[in-house]
Simulated assay, not measured.
Amino acid sequence: MNIDASLLRQAAQAAAGGQQYPAATLYLVATPIGNLADLSLRAIHCLSLVDALACEDTRQGGGLLRHLGLHKPLIALHQHNEREGSAAVIARLAAGERVAYASDAGTPAISDPGAVLVQEVVAAGYRVLPLPGPSSTVTALSVAGDTAATSFAFAGFLPTKAGERRTALQAVLAVEGQSQVVFEAPHRIVDVIALLAELAPARRVTVCRELTKQFESIHTADAATLPAWLAADTQRQRGEFVLVLHALAAQVSAEDELPAEAQRTLALLAAELPLKQAVALAAQISGAPRNRLYEAGLKLKRASDE
């Protein structure tokens, strides 16, 4: 990108220079998730003021500073050394310096390092100030159009082991009334989509790939259709993914939406078998959607426990 870094810094100074930026303070700086133009003027001004930049990857942090025509000492602070890195940051704060922290992309401490750093800095008696900005979670939610949701939950990355991933996804799918945000890597996206299609074929899912980048794509469809959609173009399997699992609408999750015969079959099976097995057999016998049967089975179980 060809820019005049000095003009960027001047614009940042004009827009954000009137605010106070106290010394001996840690500044959490949200950084672009793919498009450098999303860096805020306030973030640029803050980065120009700080005495050092702590970052998840010094190559990423150094590249960001070079983009802005800035040169600052860098402190490596990632998931493997967060406590040691925190000590280095606190030492600088103790000397009265301003220090910024930036993860590789997005908002620190949201499925990225940063939470331990904040905890340590606050415990040491220093201030932490956030600079809001890019977040793949909020970006994906904004474009999902999930009108059934009354709130959302951040599930982050699912477990890498197949059995644990299935259990975790079942728990996520069972939550009513919430959009659920899941992160996934390209080498697991096919498996995760196949699992979604199996467990909740009627669930609406928004698949966001490479958000804000040149080859960004956003696709919303029922989970049952997604394996074929992914397979139709291998480019759709590349990049970083954010999935929004749309909320269960009341009419979808309500037990009385199931045919009476499906409800009776499920109730008989659930009285004798574990819920998962009862739902699988009821789906085979009745042809009713497995996710609706599962929701109805959970209601039966709750009622029997009361």
Rank of each mutant, 00 (worst) to 15 (best):
T234N: 11
V192N: 02
E216K: 04
T150D: 04
S253C: 11
V190M: 12
R188F: 07
T212R: 05
A168W: 03
A162Y: 02
T212E: 05
L199D: 02
A185T: 15
E176P: 15
G163M: 03
L196C: 04
L226G: 08
Q251P: 01
H187L: 04
S136H: 07
A221Y: 00
V175K: 11
R203C: 10
F157R: 03
C208D: 09
L169F: 05
Q251L: 13
D233M: 06
P159Q: 06
R209D: 03
Q180E: 08
P159V: 04
V172Q: 11
T234P: 10
E164T: 13
G239V: 12
T150V: 12
L211I: 15
R188Q: 03
T212W: 08
A202T: 14
G177W: 01
Q237T: 13
S142C: 13
E210C: 09
D146I: 06
A153W: 01
R209P: 02
L158R: 05
F157Q: 03
A171P: 02
R166M: 05
Q178F: 13
T206A: 05
C208N: 10
Q237M: 12
A249G: 15
E216N: 03
S253I: 09
S135N: 14
R209C: 07
L211R: 11
A140T: 08
A155K: 01
H219P: 00
H187F: 08
H187V: 09
F154L: 05
